[in-house]
Design a binder for these strands. Structure first.
Lengths: 190, 190
DNA sequence: TTTGTGTTGGGACAAATGTCCTTTTATAAA
DNA sequence: TTTATAAAAGGACATTTGTCCCAACACAAA
C-alpha cells in the first residue's frame, strides 16, 4: 500500500554522503507535483522522507492511483529506459524530501556501480511483483473484500490518506467506498 | 495485449548461435505449463516462438490473466531478483519454443554483458509501463469500453484467444463478456 | 464575522455486472 | 458410430456499483 525500499535508501544515503555523485536533495510541500504526466524530465528521484501518490489521470478527469510511495522508493527511472515522457504524476502527500540524480549520472552509476545496478533492478522487480497480485485481487473481489484487505495490510490507512485517494486507489467511486465502510461499521455493531 | 520484445529476442538469438552461454532450447505443447505458481525454479525463459498466458490463480479458483506473452518476452526473471517462488503461472497457448538460461548463467550475463544487462532492464521497464495504463483503464471503464479498446489494439484477438481467457484478462465473468459482445453486435446491426 | 472550498457522509434511483442454470455446438475419445 | 467434454451463448434474477443529488462540517481567506 505504502511501498518502501530501505535497502535502496541506505545505499543512496551512503552515496550522497560519501562523494560527489551528482546526487542532490530537494524539498516539496504537500500537494506539490514533483512529476507531471506526459512531460519529459531528466531526473530520477528517490524518496528520502515523506509519502507521495503516483497516479494516472485520463481525458475524463478520472484519477487512478498506482501506488503510494514511501521512503526509498524510486520514480522517474522507467523513463530512462523507455525513452517516453512520464506516464504518471507524482504528488507529495506529506512534507517530502527527495534525492535527485540526472539521467547522465544515473546511467553512469548503473554502468559502473554493480551494487547500484543490482539495487535498481531489484527495485523494478519489486514493482512488478507487487502490482500483479494487487491488480488481480482488485479485479476479482468486491469493494468490501478490498477494504478489509487494505485495513489488514495497513491499519493506519485513513489517518494518512484521504477517502478520495483511497477510492481512487481501489478504482471505485467515493460513494461506493463510503457505502461499503458504512455497511462494515453496522455489521460490526451488531 | 500480446506483448513482444523483438530487440531482446534478436540478441538472445545471437547469443544462442554464437557461443556456449548455457542457453538451451525447449518445446512445449499447448496447455502445458512451463512455470507453476508458488514453485521455485532456477531458469529464466525467453519466448522464441509462440504465445503463452501469464496468470495468477487464487484460493477460490479465480484466474486473473496478467498478460499474454509473445516472441521475445522473458519470464521467470523477477524471481531471480526477488528471491521468491514464482508468483504466476505460465501456460502455453500455442505450440511454444523457449530459450532457457539457468540463474547462474543469467547472473553471469547480467554482470559481464552490458548490452544484456541493459536489455533486461528495458524489458522490465516495459512491463512496468504497460501494466499501469491497463490497470487504470480496466478499473475506470465499463466492460464495453475495454472490449472496444482491446479490439482496436489487437483486432485478431478472438481468433487466437478463447473467450474465457479474454474474460479472465479483463477481470470479468464470461457471462458479462458475452452479454456485452452481444449488445455491441446488435448495436452495429441497426 | 462572512464567504468560499474541500472533505465527509448519505438518499434515491439507474445501470452494470455477477450468479445460477440451461442449451447448443464443436471436437475429441472410446 | 456413440459418448464425453469443453467452448460458446444466453435467460432470469440478485447484487453491486455508479450517478446525481444534497447536507453537514472543518478550515482557511477575505
Amino acid at each position: 500500500m505504502i511501498r518502501t525500499n530501505p535497502e535502496l535508501l541506505t545505499y543512496i544515503n551512503e552515496l550522497y554522503n560519501k562523494k560527489n555523485n551528482g546526487i542532490t536533495e530537494e524539498k516539496h510541500n504537500p500537494k506539490q507535483r514533483v512529476i507531471e504526466q506526459n512531460k519529459r524530465y531528466n531526473w530520477v528521484y528517490i524518496i528520502k522522507k515523506g509519502i507521495t501518490k503516483c497516479y494516472l489521470s485520463d481525458e475524463n478527469g478520472k484519477d487512478f492511483i498506482q501506488e503510494f510511495l514511501g521512503e526509498g522508493m524510486e520514480f522517474g527511472e522507467i523513463e530512462v529506459f523507455s525513452g517516453n515522457p512520464s506516464f504518471c504524476c507524482i504528488e507529495a502527500i506529506t512534507e517530502l524530501v527527495v534525492y535527485k540524480i540526472s539521467y547522465i549520472d544515473f546511467n553512469t552509476l548503473l554502468e559502473n556501480d554493480k551494487k547500484f545496478n543490482r539495487l535498481v533492478i531489484k527495485a523494478m522487480a519489486a514493482k512488478i511483483s507487487y502490482k500483479a497480485p494487487r491488480h488481480s485481487y482488485q479485479q476479482s473481489y468486491p469493494i468490501e473484500d478490498n477494504i478489509l484487505r487494505l485495513q489488514q495490510l495497513f491499519p493506519k490507512l485513513t489517518e494518512v490518506i484521504s477517502k478520495s485517494d483511497i477510492a481512487n486507489y481501489l478504482g471505485v467511486t467515493l460513494r461506493s467506498l463510503n457505502r461499503t465502510l458504512n455497511q462494515l461499521k453496522h455489521r460490526n455493531e451488531n
